[in-house]
Design a protein around this nucleic acid. Structure first.
Lengths: 339, 339
DNA sequence: AACGCTAATCTAAACGTTTCGATCATGTCA
DNA sequence: TGACATGATCGAAACGTTTAGATTAGCGTT
């Protein structure tokens, strides 16, 4: 900016005033400054501005796995929303690891991001510190956080799984395998609660041997399904609480020589864009990812726009059971058709 | 840092020297400084450091659609590689729009990213400007760029499609529909060249009515397939050059009342993790996304480590034809089995 | 002519770090 | 004892912007 000021024979304050529109600059000087900017090809330095202003117009976004289609879509929606608002998005993937997450959040704060959207891992101690210290606004995504009083966008996971398991029970299934994630996070807790609640409402016992867990990867679903299917009294249906793992579930079923839904029904949490066109067409719980992403972005943009003192908001969205043909009724040899 | 210096009764230069290890500091003063850092809870300001040093330990990464499974996986690999190296990753999605890309690249340069990995849109003029001006190192991903002499990681798209179309011809297909992307990018050109080359090598004409294009979204594949299948002399196989569009292709086939592969064979570019377990099991061209992501990250990390003067490197990786059961031989009523 | 007001413009501090070069204390050698 | 070298430490400039407050010119009114 100094070169521009020299070339236009004004002070840097005048150049800054013109660029930012923070004070009147005479038409004559305006013209000279704009000409100098063009001649020199001047570009503002966002780093210097950030140092002075204390803001970066950058937000940090952390998700466990961006290859999980749910998070892929949510990241895409959030990135587009912030792009429209002129913000850069720093993306971090935690792989459900607490240390990785905490390091990444420190790295984001280190770079003075203006806000955070976090699908947290672990107890959220680091987030509590940020929120309590009023460092930057935080929006929690997908997972609530006990003791952290901040804006939150989640799904009614319990209700969503309740509906799905109830559907399976309605089809006649009584032994329903359940594959959960190992991470101690609220969606897994709530989904498990929905599973138990549906069984309890139907007067069915919760058989612990039907519940397996994995670390959210395809291979974990595979192994958990192998365990479930190798028991002598195997389930007639399997519900996977996470969509990378359901792919492993399907591979295990194939490798054992069973087929879905003839030999075993499968349902899972989170939809796929191809679920209604490839066989078997998975019965899934679909999350409104467009709404989740947009709401999360809007909550944070609202805070960034200055609305810091409003009480924290918690949006709880609803899942939608997509009934397709991967679950068949028991006690009937007729294959089910798509709803 | 000033508070730390005051508390330890040293100068800020001494504190900086201790933190950065750039000069010897006596054990006595070291102890006082470390104690002051703990007491105050001092955190370094990366913005101030960036202003002084001219680096940010941040890279910019632009891809067209992060919801395209190919880019999802590549982004994941790149993000993890840079996370291990202590870099933040700013993610931008261009939606194959030149203006969006150019704005985003300006925003990234504005924030003084140390390097760029770009799956470019358009003619790459902005990238040529950056590379020629030696602003920051640039790695081109997935798409070459005429006239831009910089590190590049691409696939041998032409060969990959050649192999896939040749496979279809070997199965007896003579009228092979082809769905390309509208964007003027090298992978689409090269894939089209592979399509033409395979037909030519088999002595088959390239029928322009069999080639349709779309803007990389599922609905575009749907519409293109509807057009292909509504002609009186419709193709017996369809190859989609982009995996979101193949989902649309499958939906169009279903909606028309046809089935794959009985009535029409389908193959596509880019694999899915679920392709070998849901029916029909898509015959696909798989890209080595782990290698692509790692190589792109390594090329840029190498530049960032100081190796600025080495001549630009171009890595051309190979696709792999995953023969599954979505393509059946013509002139035979026996359904094909997985290879 | 004098005074008051306002618009335009500028100076310089500030944001928080890094580090160059100056200074001082200490030790060694002739 | 004096000269010289070296280690430790510090002051202050620099990175590039923003803006508070000071200054000046011009205009209108009395």
């Amino acid at each position: 900016m100094l070169h521009v000021a020299e070339a236009a024979r004004v002070s840097v304050a005048t150049v800054s005033a013109l660029i930012n529109g923070t004070a009147t600059v005479s038409p004559e000087l305006s013209q000279r400054i704009e000409q100098a900017i063009r001649d020199i090809g001047y570009k503002r330095n966002a780093i210097a501005r950030s140092l002075k202003m204390g803001t970066t117009r950058t937000i940090g976004l952390t998700v466990p796995h961006i290859t999980n289609p749910f998070f892929t879509d949510v990241v895409s929606v959030i990135q587009q929303a912030f792009d429209r608002a002129g913000y850069a998005v720093m993306l971090c993937c935690t792989d459900e690891d607490l240390n990785t997450q905490d390091d990444q959040i420190r790295l984001l704060l280190d770079r003075m991001v203006d806000g955070l959207i976090v699908a947290r891992v672990g107890d959220g101690a680091i987030l509590k510190g940020i929120v309590d210290g009023a460092n930057v606004p935080v929006v929690l995504l997908d997972r609530v956080c006990e003791g952290v009083d901040t804006d939150t966008v989640v799904l009614d996971n319990q209700r969503a799984v309740f509906d799905a398991i109830t559907y399976l029970i309605h089809l006649g299934h009584r032994r329903i395998g359940y594959i959960t994630g190992t991470s101690d996070i609220s969606p897994m807790h709530d989904r498990m609660a929905g599973y138990r609640q549906a069984l309890h409402a139907a007067g069915l016992p919760v058989a612990e041997e039907l519940v397996r867990s994995g670390n959210f990867h395809e291979i974990d679903g595979y192994n958990a399904t192998m365990q479930l299917l190798s028991s002598h009294d195997r389930p007639s249906a399997i519900f996977s609480a996470n969509n990378p793992m359901v792919i492993g579930t399907m591979k295990a079923i194939r490798d054992i020589g069973l087929s879905c839904p003839q030999d075993i029904s499968v349902a899972c949490f989170d939809d796929f864009p191809w679920s209604d066109v490839f066989q078997p067409q998975l019965t899934t719980v679909a999350q409104p990812v467009q709404a989740i992403g947009e709401q999360a972005a809007n909550l944070l943009l609202d805070r960034l726009a200055g609305n810091r003192d409003a009480p924290p908001r918690k949006l709880v969205l609803k899942g939608r059971l997509m009934i397709r043909n991967s679950c068949r009724p028991l006690g009937s040899m007729v294959q089910s058709v798509s709803a």
